[in-house]
Amino acid sequence: MKPDNIMNPVGPGEDELVPSRYAVRIGDIEVLVISDGVLPLPTQTMSTNVDPAEREAWFKDMFLGPDAFDWALNVLLVQSGDQTILVDAGLGGQFSGFPRAGQSLRRLEAAGVDLGSVTDIVLTHMHMDHVGGLLGDDVKSRLRPDLRIHVAAAEVDFWDSPDFSHTDMPAPVPDVLRSTAKQFLDQYHNKLQTFENEHEVAPGVVARRTGGHTPGHSLVTVTSGGERLTFAGDILFPVAFDHPEWHNGFEHDPEESVRVRVRFLQEAAASGELVVATHMPFPSVGRVALNGDRFRWVASFWDY
């Protein structure tokens, strides 16, 4: 796949009202944000350490809730030189109850991207909404035999015997997360290339372990021509800018997650770099600014 395939994809799927993809150029590197769709979550999941009245007030101010909201899902496609890199793979369509999620691989095809052209996959972590897209029917057979899947060693070790004692998820979720991670490792263990703390996946594309959300959670930075974009994975959520101290029920180490989140927000505000995150509303391209003692999300203007 040549770089201009990302910037100038073919038409959207026939059943799509909008393409659900957005292209950004970072120096010589091309980035495509793909919406994997949305899934419904209880508002409590976004603020497990908060008084219910405070939670309700925040969601009301955001015209969301009061009890549930749609959680965005995004993945990234990066073209660096002759490498085509998929960052996370979305939810997949095999989980019942989420009909509006698991769209990323279909939308890649609608963008004219052959799954067999992907040379590398980087996983920010191994929750079901990040690896599930690799577990659908016939997905593995369409991937390259020499595909490399990059993930932090700490993440692989964690899912050997995962600890959910500090999480606060809806009751069925931990068992599904365990079984999905196991299924992924069973199918793809021979394609894994693990790293400890930092790994250059391709020229200008670096994965760096942050921990917090999961022990091996990682972000991915794209740097070229003096420009930089960071895919923050699950470090950020919409509530994080007003309340980075609020715990997310999916965080395996909530206190460390807060430290990681605040440090990242401070660094992003100082650098002015572009930021994309899994669960920020599509296209999830913007910057972090300081707003007194809080942070502010500044969404990029769409480049038509």
Score class of each variant (00 low, 15 high):
K182H: 05
P238I: 04
E16G: 07
G13T: 04
V122W: 04
V276R: 02
R287P: 03
F164R: 08
V24W: 02
L86Q: 06
R144K: 15
D157Q: 15
V38I: 09
F295P: 06
P172T: 07
N190Q: 13
V288T: 06
D186P: 00
G136Q: 12
V262E: 12
R228A: 12
T194W: 06
T194A: 12
R263Y: 00
V118Q: 10
G133Q: 04
R228F: 04
T167C: 15
R100P: 00
N197P: 00
N248W: 07
Q83N: 14
V275E: 00
F231L: 08
G116T: 06
W58H: 11
G249A: 09
F295L: 08
S165P: 02
V10W: 07
L147M: 12
P254N: 01
T119G: 12
F237T: 06
L265Y: 03
V113N: 07
R148P: 07
L290K: 13
F158S: 11
S271C: 01
T43N: 07
D120E: 10
G204R: 05
V78F: 04
F164W: 13
L76W: 03
V260Y: 00
H243C: 01
E227D: 11
A181H: 08
N190Y: 02
T43V: 14
L265V: 03
P281M: 00
Q79P: 01
S20Y: 13
N5H: 14
A53V: 13
H125Y: 08
V205D: 05
E16L: 15
A152C: 04
V156A: 09
V201W: 05
M280F: 11
V113W: 05
A268C: 06
E30C: 11
L17H: 02
W159M: 00
M126F: 08
F195L: 03
S96M: 06
G204W: 03
M280K: 01
E256T: 13
R294P: 03
S300K: 11
L76C: 11
V262P: 06
S141Q: 15
G65I: 10
D120H: 14
T278C: 14
V276T: 14
